[in-house]
Each structure stands twice: as structure tokens, then as C-alpha cells.
């Protein structure tokens, strides 16, 4: 039966390769080759113009002695830990709100997504600097209503949060994915639960959350990877300061590779970075069997 249902194109499978050729070339030239070559480079003393001598594990040893490495790793982990839960929580909250049949919902959705269109651009970084600088708009507002001004970008504790706030403000893409997932939960589930006397909160935890758990997982992974790689916001808003509290890992990488021209060393940094992200991603995948529900299974 299964064989009979195979449609026309499954029999002429060689055609598939015609469609895939561009990707295969791109994969090898722009992805796999750079991926493996950076591993090779990480064992050399390659600089921009010279070098490429094999030096074994020296780069890796040096990294673990580098105080900047530890600082930026801590700063990055803090940034990720603040950004991802806030962003996803907010995105889910707004998605649930937007999923109701309210008048003018399209308009609200447009507005809520708008900041995400501005993305991680230099313009937005400039805007953030104007809003949150010492005598910026947010502080003038706070003093006006009788509160103390806050060193949003001036204190190491706050700066990371302020930068994270920018990413949280741009929760749109996660929100749209949540919204799409919410729309796919059958209404009948909620009606049945209501018949049994379940309240809104119970419905949310017993129907909504399990129903969209695959997309929560997808968003969690993508947003975590994205947050780890943030560059433009700290680079343009704080320059990594104060006291390297926002000196995120990608800035450390950039400085070593393109300011100090230590490409071998930076390659080793990038591989450690890759491994950290891979471990975090695997942890999320690993825990998913406890909280992700696939209807197909």
C-alpha cells in the first residue's frame, strides 16, 4: 500500500539533486570548509598577514589564563540569562493577548512587532543611548516623578540589564511564532475543558502550554543561540563597559581576530564558544522529553 502511494517524483529522485546543488556548493564553500578550517587555525599562531605555524594546544592554554575570557564569558552568560526568559515570557504573554478576538487586533499586532523591524541596527543602538544615558530621557522622567535617577549604562550591574532590555523590546519574531502555534490549538480542547469546569489558568497550563511546547522549544533554542552571539548592541551602546560588564563574547572574538590580528587565538576562542553553545543547546534538547509534547508521537 505504501509503495503504491508513492507519488511521481519519488521515483525520479535524481531530480532532487538539481534542486539541492546550490545549497551543496554553499554548504561546502561557505559553511563546512570555514567550520573545519577554524578548528585547524585554532592550533596555529596565524595572524592576519603571517604565521600559520602549528603550536598545538597553546592557544587553548592561553585562553584559560586570559582574564578577559572569564570576564566576557560571565558577562555573556548573564546577558543570555536575562534576555532569553524575559524575551520569551513577554513574547508569549503578548501572543496570548493577541490571540483573543479583540477589535483592531491587527493594528496592535503591527505596533507590537514594529520594534523588531528596527532590529539590531546602529540606529536603535543610538536611540537606546539617548534614552538610557545618565541625563537621558528615562532618567529625566524618573527624576520628574520624584524617583532617583538610575545609572542604566553607568553601573556594571545595570548595564547588562539595559542592553538586554533592547533585545526584549524586540520580541516580535518569537511572538509571531507563538501566535501561529496558538492558532493551531483546536478550540474544542478549550470548550471541553470549560465543560469540565476548568478555569482560565488551568486551561493555560494544561492546554495552551503543552500545545505550543514544540514552538517554545524552537524559540528557546533559537533565541539562546542568538543571545549568545549579540554584538551590535553592546558594541555601539556601551563599548563593552563599564568594567567589561557588557564585554560580550563576540566582542572578545572580534577584538582578538580583527583588532589584535590574532586569528589563531580567536579561532580557538570561537571553538570554545561553539562548544559552550552546543552544550547549552543539547541540554535544552535533552530536557525536552520532560516538557515538549509532540502530537505525532
Amino acid at each position: 500500500m505504501k509503495h503504491k502511494r508513492k507519488s511521481y517524483n519519488y521515483q525520479r529522485s535524481h531530480v532532487a539533486y538539481v534542486y539541492l546543488i546550490p545549497w551543496m556548493i554553499g554548504l561546502v564553500v561557505f559553511q563546512l570548509y570555514p567550520f573545519l578550517y577554524s578548528l585547524v587555525l585554532s592550533f596555529t599562531d596565524k595572524s592576519m598577514l603571517t604565521g600559520g605555524r602549528f603550536i598545538g594546544l597553546q592557544n587553548y592554554v592561553a585562553i584559560f589564563k586570559d582574564p578577559n575570557f572569564k570576564k566576557s564569558l560571565v558577562a555573556t552568560l548573564a546577558y543570555v540569562a536575562i534576555t532569553v526568559p524575559l524575551k520569551l515570557g513577554f513574547a508569549l504573554f503578548i501572543a496570548v493577548l493577541c490571540n483573543q478576538k479583540l477589535k483592531g487586533i491587527g493594528f496592535y499586532r503591527t505596533i507590537v512587532y514594529l520594534p523588531s523591524v528596527l532590529g539590531g541596527s546602529a540606529g536603535v543602538a543610538i536611540l537606546w543611548r539617548a534614552l538610557f544615558s545618565g541625563r537621558g530621557l528615562v532618567n529625566s522622567f524618573l527624576t520628574k516623578i520624584g524617583l532617583k535617577s538610575v545609572p542604566w549604562l553607568g553601573s556594571p550591574n545595570m548595564a547588562s540589564f539595559t542592553i538586554a532590555l533592547l533585545a526584549v523590546w524586540q520580541f516580535g519574531s518569537s511572538m509571531v511564532l507563538f501566535l501561529a502555534a496558538l492558532k493551531q490549538i483546536p478550540r474544542s480542547y478549550y470548550e471541553a475543558a470549560k465543560m469540565d469546569g476548568a478555569g482560565a489558568v488551568t486551561c493555560f497550563f494544561k492546554i495552551t502550554l503543552p500545545g505550543i511546547s514544540p514552538i517554545i522549544q524552537f524559540n528557546l533554542i533559537m533565541q539562546t543561540i542568538n543571545a549568545f552571539q549579540e554584538f551590535a548592541a553592546p558594541y555601539l551602546i556601551t563599548g563593552g563597559g563599564p568594567l567589561k560588564s557588557t564585554y560580550l563574547y563576540s566582542m572578545l572574538l572580534y577584538d582578538n581576530a580583527f583588532s589584535f590580528m590574532k586569528m589563531g587565538y580567536a579561532s580557538a576562542l570561537s571553538w570554545i564558544f561553539f562548544l559552550i553553545i552546543a552544550v547549552v543547546t543539547l541540554i535544552i534538547f535533552g530536557t525536552s522529553k520532560f516538557w515538549v509534547f509532540n502530537e505525532n508521537e
Binding site: 559553511q31 570555514p34 586569528m263 579561532s267 564558544f273
Partner: peptide
């Protein structure tokens, strides 16, 4: 896998290329 691969691992070899 490429979807999950951080861009940062690729930039140095890409730059050299």
C-alpha cells in the same frame, strides 16, 4: 545543524577566504 551553528565560528576563515 547549520541552523544551530553560531556564525562566530565561521567568520575568521570566511574573512580569510
Amino acid at each position: 545543524g547549520m541552523l544551530l551553528l553560531p556564525e562566530q565560528v565561521l567568520i575568521i576563515p570566511r574573512y580569510l577566504l
